[in-house]
């Protein structure tokens, strides 16, 4: 099966029902995408499949076959994506574990909705648990990244 991950086509000999999360982590050594619940409940495993955010623990490899997968490692190599920049300016991470998922969800939100309302932020990010409680700063960083995107388009 062929899956393109972060722009690189990968030829994989795996069971079609193996969740994408474990394909990334155990077969491609892309460990930036995290396991948190394995049940689609926490968002730690969020990646983009053909531009849309998906929970990779609930996405069988077969569903990604032939598709384009973007993980945190592919967002930028130097943390220069506007969402990563906003994340750093607000010192969002505490333990950091949930943050790849938070960032991938935020990027997807801002790609669809460049200046999201509070309610849009709440609903787009409700699937990403942060046990450390960085939510206040997640909101601030999304607003900043959104505002910057708005400015650069204007």
């Amino acid at each position: 099966m062929k899956i393109t991950v972060n722009g690189k086509e990968q030829e994989l000999d795996i069971a079609p029902d193996l969740p994408l999360l474990w394909v990334l982590r155990d077969h491609l050594q892309l460990t930036g995408t995290k396991y948190g619940c394995g049940k689609g409940l926490c968002g730690a495993c969020t990646v983009h499949l053909d531009g849309a955010p998906v929970r990779s623990c609930q996405t069988p490899a077969s569903a990604a076959a032939g598709g384009l997968v973007l993980t945190i490692e592919g967002l930028s190599s130097d943390a220069s994506h506007p969402v990563q920049v906003a994340w750093q300016e607000h010192n969002v991470p505490q333990c950091g574990y949930c943050q790849s998922g938070q960032i991938m969800s935020a990027v997807a939100l801002l790609e669809r909705t460049p200046s999201p309302s509070d309610a849009e932020i709440d609903s787009a990010m409700a699937g990403n648990i942060c046990r450390c409680g960085t939510y206040t700063r997640v909101r601030l960083a999304i607003r900043q990244a959104g505002a910057q995107a708005g400015e650069s388009q204007a």
Binding site: L30, T31, G32, T33, K34, T71, I72, E73, L75, S76, S77, D78, A79, Q84, W87, Q88, N91, P93, G96, Y97, Q99, S100, I103
Partner: peptide, 12 residues
């Protein structure tokens, strides 16, 4: 660890 936590370049 701030930048690495934002790029997934971390070892848990």
């Amino acid at each position: 660890d701030l930048q690495d936590m934002c790029t997934g370049n971390t070892t848990y």
